[in-house]
Write a protein that binds this DNA or RNA. Structure first.
Lengths: 397, 397
DNA sequence: TAACTTTGTTTATCTTTTAAACTAAGATTA
DNA sequence: TAATCTTAGTTTAAAAGATAAACAAAGTTA
């Protein structure tokens, strides 16, 4: 049976300590006096919390040399080197791992191609990457505080991978495996959720409390941030926006549905179109990099299929916006490298199809974190989990 | 500047008081001792809170006559007659008003047809209905604690009606008008949001913390309950699922978009189809009531168009489910009276088009509150607002 | 140098929770 | 019927923590 949180002195203290900590972390450096004025907490309370946080190595102090007409304040800094986090982007043909400090600054990165998606091979590569990153982590009070993994598939509430079509995995409990190997907390999340979390914390969506991150790769997935929290659905599998029906009588998708958005607006759709339209000379293999260079040199056929792709992306975005009325929609993953050519057709479609109020109030952005979205998001989920364990943050997913 | 909530003794007390109150309200009647065991609060704390709540007339006690081997417990009851709430369903050609107790039990109802949707006429009828209900409210400690209004249109964060197409209203601040007239708190919400809130509190979705209520009337709107809270979007206009594109190249909707769901799956779509197919003899006016009786007598053409309607509803529901992974989807408003004939085609489409995990985990239900959803939901929003003012509940919309 | 400012700590007070003791009241049993 | 056991609810004393006010520290300004 789950006990609810009741109000007692201990709870009050945890609450105020987390207020002080978050003030320092998010708006710091700040003096005790400033924190008191800013949060409404008494100076004495702030002092108590600050010295505890200093004892715990989560905060350190440096005397300021700027006086404003009285005693100089002592500035409190978040100790972003109190520990380190590891984030993994589990791609389909690669694994990217990053080591970050507690502010999400990338310290090291390792990438390895994946020859096969067989679980054993993936797991070995994964362990190798994590191991390498761990040895590169500098000495610190808390060491490596956790591992976050962004997976290309459905992740359930226990963080088992339910179904990852492109890896051909079903019911894989990667979390437990990795946790048993390294004996530190492991968080597994869907790749789009990682991206959303990342953009919300460090990227284009920093200022936004309701945002939708649309990850367009082989397929389309979405991460949903509602009131500053990641929403993952009742069983953890929300955000399957790639399987929006945008053509009720369209062709069948492997998911069972017909006319899914991702059949028209994904990387896969782009590659199929390119193949069908024979936009490249015969002996060129078609891949994204090639299409980028062709677009840059002004290949008309390529520009045409990008235009169509943008229109279809726009059609799906109207659905997203009408549904969520988000502050912001961020388009990420590999398709983001075509932003120059997609922006116009997307905006045209939105101008055409959205109601006045939505047009006025919704920002459409492309990811600014590029290929790091997923790995960095995974690392930051591990950080949130750590801070949540320290009762300094609340993580609700 | 908005002060954040810090932890102090007063906050702790409010918190524990609300825990005791909600235990009594939602799981009551309960004795002090049971509450203590259930919540983890000390018996002494429960006693303190209980006597305050009794002083405030929100709770009363009745001695039990059942002993379980010792002193008989005194049962604490929520005083659902401590005050009354008024809920309004602002239809397009009618206004329905209800007077409820604090448990959402309907005590009185008044309905009036609307000859025109001109603001002055609507306002007068509204005031008449509210006035009549107020005089019918029994004497009570808090009197009529507020008025909730469910409106058929977009409501912004200040609860002004931005746009109500079927009323032909734009930028109407009904809230302030009514509040100035009656001098008690007025809450205005979109009709689908009211329905969602109502189903969540009293109806089919009582047990569910993530649910989507789909209101199918002339158009289609949706109310979104996420983690037991109503989510209304950044500007208050989320849930416009009626304008989902389900046919990218479909015909134009008045919203600007093409192939919107509500063009295929609403009451309007049903009526249009019926007209086009000439399912009724020439001199019969086509309306919903007539179609219900025809369906009951087994009119094949009517059954056919209902089948098609159901399939289109199902297509939109796959979008909703893929997006939100809700525990439950509730279909409400006037279309719910066709549930007998819609259930099968909807389920067929979902079986066909949803992935295994969604099929297993999503409940599809029809509203059990029928024509009262919106008015009752509005009343309950007013109640939540009252309890929130008393610091006994938190309302986050 | 004196007066004023700003920062941060110490102290005494206040509120509230809680465990433990106690009162109340009924059931069971010898 | 009296003694014992159970359960419910209140009282009391102790402990925790926030806060205002007093105080100490360390600077600026005139």
């Amino acid at each position: 049976m789950q006990r609810i949180q009741t109000g007692d002195q201990n709870f009050v203290k945890k609450m105020n300590k987390s207020i002080v900590f978050n003030a320092i972390k998010n708006k710091g450096p700040m003096s005790r006096s400033q924190i008191s004025k800013n949060t409404g907490l008494n100076k004495a309370t702030v002092s108590t919390m600050a010295s505890e946080l200093i004892d715990e190595s989560l905060v350190y102090e440096i005397e300021s040399n700027q006086s404003s007409g009285g005693r100089k304040p002592v500035m409190l800094y978040f100790n972003n080197h109190a520990g380190y986090s590891i984030g993994i982007d589990l791609g389909v043909n690669y694994i990217l791992g990053v080591l970050t400090d507690l502010n999400g600054t990338i310290m090291e990165e390792i990438s390895r191609p994946l020859a096969s998606t067989a679980f054993a091979e993936v797991k070995n590569t994964l362990i190798f990457i994590i191991q390498s990153l761990m040895t590169k982590a500098p000495d610190s009070p808390y060491g490596v505080i956790g591992i976050g993994i962004g997976a290309p598939g459905n992740v359930d509430l226990n963080e088992a991978i339910l179904f990852a079509p492109n890896l051909k995995w079903k019911q894989v409990d990667l979390k437990t495996d990795i946790q048993n190997h390294f004996h530190i907390p492991v968080k597994v999340q869907n790749e789009a959720n990682c991206g959303a979390y990342c953009e919300h914390l460090y990227g284009a969506g920093k200022s936004s409390s309701n945002l939708i991150y649309i990850s367009i790769g082989i397929g389309i997935g979405a991460g949903i941030i509602i009131q500053n929290n990641l929403y993952t659905g009742t069983s953890g599998i929300s955000g399957e926006m790639g399987h929006f029906t945008i053509n009720a009588n369209g062709r069948k998708c492997r998911c069972g549905n017909h006319g899914c958005w991702e059949l028209y607006a994904s990387e896969q759709a782009l590659l199929n179109d390119a193949k069908k339209q024979k936009v490249l000379s015969k002996n060129d293999a078609i891949n994204l990099e090639k299409l980028v260079t062709e677009a840059q040199t002004g290949n008309k056929e390529v520009l045409q299929i990008l235009h169509t792709l943008g229109e279809y992306i726009g059609i799906g975005l109207t659905n997203v916006i009408n549904t969520f009325n988000p502050e912001m929609v961020i388009i990420g993953n590999r398709i983001a490298q075509f932003s120059n050519w997609l922006e116009n057709p997307i905006n045209h479609v939105l101008q055409d199809r959205l109601s006045y109020y939505h047009k006025e109030n919704t920002d459409i952005k492309f990811s600014v974190l590029g290929i790091y979205s997923s790995a960095l998001g995974a690392a930051s989920i591990a950080i949130s989990n750590f801070l949540s364990d320290q009762k300094l943050e609340t993580m609700t997913f």
